[in-house]
């Protein structure tokens, strides 16, 4: 069984579970976020309002980092020298700070929704 089949099967399972049927595979704007020396590059992400956005995070440090934001209600570990995908939005205009939970003193950033 290939990955997409597993994914579809599993997704249907979850969908049945919560009776929500909208898993959109449509193209979503994608932005890149890089982690280097426990810093976010760029540290300010600008995204359009009321639009779902896919953030692809590349961790260029050898150590893992956790992307976290209480305002965005997101939390995700990115392994060292790895990448991860986080979907956010659609969001109201405003500022949504995020930080790296493992190195919160340096890894700080903000999502600005316009």
């Amino acid at each position: 069984m290939n990955k997409s089949k597993v994914r579809i099967l599993l997704s249907q399972l979850f969908l049945c579970l919560i009776l929500v049927t909208n898993s959109s595979y449509a193209a979503v704007p994608e932005i890149e976020l890089r982690i280097r020396d426990h810093l976010f590059f760029p540290s300010t992400l600008e995204i359009p309002a009321n639009q779902k956005v896919k953030i692809r995070i590349f961790n260029e440090d050898p150590t893992p980092e956790e992307f976290e934001s209480f305002e965005l209600n997101r939390e995700k570990i990115i392994v060292g020298n790895g990448q991860a995908v986080v979907f956010i939005g659609p969001l109201e205009p405003g500022e949504y700070p995020f930080f790296g939970e493992f190195y919160p003193k340096t890894a700080q950033g903000v999502v600005v929704v316009k």
Binding site: D37, L39, F40, F41, T106
Partner: peptide
């Protein structure tokens, strides 16, 4: 303020 440059915060 806080700023990032030269690989540091």
């Amino acid at each position: 303020d806080f700023i990032n440059f030269n690989s540091y915060r």
